[in-house]
């Protein structure tokens, strides 16, 4: 029998790495991968906490809904990325500065 805290530590690692990727990386698709990583960490935490209750299934159910929302987010995000690439011919967020004053 393994304790639940192992999974919680793994979730903490995945979440902090995901948020670091979102802040640091300069490519929109890699930022999307970081968001997926954070959502996975949250599902991992839901499953881990559900282990404290024997017959209960609520954590698994919330995990399924988180995965569904992740699918929606990936589809819409990629559509926006593709349309932005079509218009600006770049996938680097810093190059899209048409509204910026100091160009």
């Amino acid at each position: 029998m393994f304790p639940t805290s192992n999974l919680l530590y793994l979730g903490a690692v995945l979440f902090s790495i995901g948020i670091t990727i979102v802040v640091v990386k300069r490519n929109m698709i890699i930022v999307l991968l970081g968001i997926e990583l954070m959502l996975n960490a949250s599902v991992l935490n839901l499953v881990a906490f559900n282990q404290r209750y024997g017959e209960n299934i609520d954590g698994h159910m919330f995990g399924i809904f988180v995965i569904v929302i992740a699918v929606c987010e990936a589809a819409v995000g990629l559509a926006i990325i593709i349309q932005v690439y079509r218009y600006y011919q770049t996938s680097v967020p810093e190059d899209i500065n048409e509204l910026s004053e100091s160009r």
């Binding site: 639940t4 805290s5 017959e55």
Partner: peptide, 16 residues
Amino acid sequence: MVYLISKESFSRSADI
């Protein structure tokens, strides 16, 4: 998060 997790001890249910 590591500090908060290490403060508590989470154990899994016996009859899972």
